[in-house]
Nucleic acid binder design. Structure first.
Length: 442
RNA sequence: CGGGGUAUAGCGCAGCCUGGUAGCGCAUCUGGUUUGGGACCAGAGGGUCGCAAGUUCGAAUCUUGCUGCCCCGACCA
């Protein structure tokens, strides 16, 4: 993409409403625009990151056997009356009436609707297990939206719903999502730690929040340092084998959020093993049994001919929140530092002197070769000053910057800068291609 | 929902106390000089001063009401 033909509205100054670093950087980097409290437009750069995150989530959901659907944002109130939640939900639910005065709502979540879909088609245990998910915009009318995209009223969420014939089968479904989440967050360059969460009326041990550590996190969390070094399950993990050993390895060490924290248990860890930090919740999985299938009549026939309400679980990932969380975890004074897997572009190619023959030729050549090799390049071909170009590149945080100018090209080299480490090296254009293509297209 | 702020050009702000018809920096446009870490000079465009009532000869400025947004707390993915 040529910057001269792109839409990247950078702000030099800090908007005063943005207090938290991710919010500030997203506004400054031209990723989002606030339209109302907790409601944002996604500008091109922000949208690209959102899509990168979605793609990773989709790939890992597929690997774990979940199947994608898409349910509407607007739901009929009657479904929620069946589950009893229409009255129970409170003011966070945005209620709407259509022209016929029928009660609708902007969905804050989708248990009722997915249960309705399930009961319409599935009758037999032979069709299980089943896990359906979608990635859709949700709305919760928060009293006080804040932290930019991290705590908006409208937010993009992946929510999956599992259906199984009994609790034991549901536990396998739960484990698949558990392992899938470990892989999903690791691929985004995040260290997400599963922490036991409150299970509400169901009870049991099947509810975890996935928390990433960031100094600006919203809540206090505590865990065993050992969790930070555990190995993420490999891509070729068989999700339909017994995943219990993996889940146990990840749930054995101490890990708890503020609400679930047990200081006495935490104190039994060696001083050096105690990690107490701030965290951001990016995922939440839980088993809720027949809470919805029962009142809504979602039943399947078992092998012995009985009909039983299906056992369900739900599994959320805050997709739009992750954009903010990623920035909270990856930034410095100059701006964002994207992990390559979610970066809006891989490389920022800076032409220091548009109009200069050799510089243009070298830049165009690099742009063509990198792009042809599958590297996503944002090519700054604009006629502005070097300092402004560098500042913009640092701000938007692409993993690599390639700087081509007359001075270096006299000696046949361009500069490659690693945004994360700050390391710079001078390489010939061909060497740049040889270095970056394998690093970014693996 | 309690408490506290704030609202003036795209962004950041001054002006308000002491009423006289709006200004600064950045950004934008034109011309020139510049050009390897957010250039300089000269000129230009851009604002129903959040909205509505009131006081006054006259309101960005004083009064009242409303609304938006932000922060702290309670709540939440």
């Amino acid at each position: 993409m040529r910057l001269s033909r792109y839409f990247l509205p950078i702000l030099k100054e800090n908007p005063k409403e943005a207090e938290i670093v991710s919010h500030r950087l997203m506004l400054r980097a031209g990723m989002i625009r606030q339209q109302s409290a907790g409601i944002y437009s996604w500008l091109p750069l922000g949208l690209r990151v959102l899509r990168k995150i979605e793609r990773i989530v989709e790939e890992e959901q597929a690997r774990a056997g979940a199947i994608q659907v898409l349910m509407p944002t607007i739901q009929p109130a009657d479904l929620w009356r069946e589950s009893g939640r229409y009255d129970a939900y409170g003011k966070e639910m945005l209620r709407i009436a259509d022209r016929h005065e029928r009660d609708l709502l902007f969905g804050p979540t989708n248990e009722e609707m997915i249960t309705d879909i399930f009961r319409a088609y599935v009758r037999s245990y032979k069709d299980l297990p089943l896990n359906l998910y979608h990635i859709q915009w949700k709305f919760r009318d928060e009293v006080r939206p804040r932290f930019g995209i991290m705590r908006g009223r409208e937010f993009l969420m992946k929510d999956a719903y599992s259906f199984d014939v009994d609790k034991e089968a549901a536990r396998h479904a739960y484990n698949r999502m558990f392992v899938s989440y470990l892989r999903t967050f690791t691929r985004m360059g995040l260290k997400a730690i599963p922490m036991k969460a409150e299970t509400g009326p169901i009870g049991g041990d099947m509810s975890h929040e996935f928390i990433i550590l960031a100094s600006t996190g919203e809540s206090e969390v505590y865990c065993d340092k050992a969790l930070l070094d555990l190995e993420t399950p490999a891509a070729d993990t068989d999700f339909f084998s017994d995943l219990t050993p993996i889940v146990e390895a990840w749930t054995a060490p101490y890990a708890a959020t503020d609400e679930m924290h047990d200081p006495a248990a935490f104190e039994t860890l060696a001083e050096s093993a105690r990690v107490s930090a701030r965290g951001i919740e990016v995922g939440h999985i839980f088993y809720f049994g027949t809470k919805y299938s029962d009142p809504m009549g979602a039943k399947v026939a078992t092998g012995d001919g009985n009909e039983v309400p299906v056992h369900m679980g739900s599994y959320g990932i805050g997709v739009s929140r992750l954009v903010g969380a990623l920035i909270e975890a990856n930034h410095d004074e100059a701006g964002i530092i994207w992990p390559a897997s979610v970066a809006p572009f891989h490389v920022g190619l800076v032409n220091l002197k548009p109009g200069d023959g050799p510089t243009d030729a070298a830049s165009e050549d690099l742009y063509g070769k990198l792009t042809a090799a599958g590297v996503e390049v944002l090519y700054d071909d604009t006629d502005t000053r070097a300092g402004a170009k560098f500042a913009t590149m640092d701000l938007i945080g692409l993993p690599y910057q390639v700087v081509a100018g007359p001075r270096g090209l006299k000696d046949g080299v361009v500069e490659v800068k690693n945004r994360a480490s700050g390391e710079k090296e001078l390489l010939s254009p061909d060497a740049v291609v040889n270095k970056l293509v394998p690093a970014l297209t693996a």
